[in-house]
Design a protein around this nucleic acid. Structure first.
Lengths: 238, 238
DNA sequence: GTCTATAGTTGGATAGAC
DNA sequence: GTCTATCCAACTATAGAC
């Protein structure tokens, strides 16, 4: 049984090792997502990741090349579908509007909804995904900064134009500033800081809120902010 | 003036080493603040910190006990004066109002201004401080989570009460949610993400904006959001 | 494609001289 | 109070067997 013949024969116990490569990669990505999210990039050893994935350090190097490349792959796997969904929604809105300005709330929904949708669709993974989202904004590796530009750059650009049309009385610089406020809100919420916000006394816990509830209020809140005239710049009231 | 008596003996070259302990501690804190801010806690070795501070690893252990304790001290040094300033401003507003509700914009100013004020007052250090602020919300060490509760808990509680009086038609849970949106905006701005936000094309750079400009617009933006009726909960319009 | 073994660094922490 | 020297654990990455 131990492979007397040449090539084709005898996968007896070798078959154990020759697992599906794609499955190994996915197990690595899942483990990396969870651990990088919990302890950060520098706080997580490659060993811990491979151990959690039930494989070896060298397997990770074979598939991804380096620890940093594994991080990049981990982030990309989640952000790409979200970016795609955002742009698709925006394009559909623009198609339907046929030149007319798109209502602010619709634009914000197109930008924000895909994150929640994706989280909800992935169940448990949604919980771990949000940590990765937070890391994207604070983890040190220089690669991440480039990745952030690559991921957000085109999307922000497209939404900026749409917002400028929805808010014709505001200067583009003022809108760009508000857009960063929006990103701040989004990151904070997506990172899961709502759940562990300090409560007690007169501060009620926010742990039980549904995604729909949070998303809905976020849109109301941000839309009101965006509509508020900017008294300092070339805004409406000037 | 150099007190020759008592402590009489030979400080010949030993005097070199016997530097002012408080100054050493401050140099360590400065270096830790800069490096932890740039590369994160796990991404920064204690050796790198002590080298930048011009001292030794064992000096750091002597003064702070551990790398983690050094991080805690670094954060505390900056957050304590800010928390104090926030509460002082709030108390003064409440004293002056003498029972009447305090205008929303005043409350937001009391909450947000101290950060900018502190940054401006410290010059270069203000630039590095903001990184520490960002770390506070994402760095992995478990100590940081406790520290966050300790630092923000009482302040959030006090401001929650004041906001509830300024917005009598809103439910406290809804205000608590909005307050987290506010924190998200604050963290994002304080962390310095405005400067390296993606620009180009139709997105103007935000790098040149003054603190006053950003703070002013932040208050307008957030105040409008807080005043926006919450259609889903026990808000005004219901 | 996956493993074991190991190379070569670098990490936090401590002991003991001064 | 500050240093030098050192311990030992843990890390990334690679080489080579299977």
């Amino acid at each position: 049984m131990t492979s007397p013949e040449t090539a084709p024969a005898a996968l007896s116990n070798v078959a154990e090792r020759r697992r599906d490569p794609e499955e190994t990669q996915e197990r690595l990505l899942d483990a990396a997502e969870r651990l990088f999210g919990e302890r950060g990039f520098d706080g997580t050893s490659l060993r811990a990741v491979t151990q959690a994935a039930g494989t070896s350090v060298s397997a990770a190097h074979y598939h991804f090349g380096s620890k940093e490349a594994l991080l990049v792959a981990t982030i990309r796997r989640r952000t790409e579908p979200i970016t795609r969904a955002r742009l698709e929604r925006l394009e559909r809105l623009e198609r339907e509007a046929a030149g007319a300005p798109i209502p602010l709330e619709r634009l914000l929904d197109a930008f924000l909804c895909p994150i929640f949708e994706y989280r909800a669709a992935r169940g448990d993974h949604g919980e771990t995904f949000r940590r990765i989202a937070a890391r994207l904004f604070s983890d040190p590796p220089a690669v991440v900064a480039d990745l952030k530009r690559e991921i957000f750059g085109p999307t922000v650009e497209r939404f900026m134009s749409a917002l400028a049309r929805a808010l014709p009385e505001r200067s583009s610089r003022s809108i760009a500033l508000d857009l960063q406020f929006l990103v701040g809100v989004m990151v904070h919420v997506t990172s899961g800081h709502l759940e562990d916000a300090p409560d007690g006394g007169s501060v009620p816990s926010l742990a039980g809120l549904s995604d729909e509830r949070v998303l809905g209020r976020m849109i109301e809140f941000v839309a009101a902010g965006l509509r508020a005239p900017d008294r300092q710049s070339g805004g409406a009231l000037r």
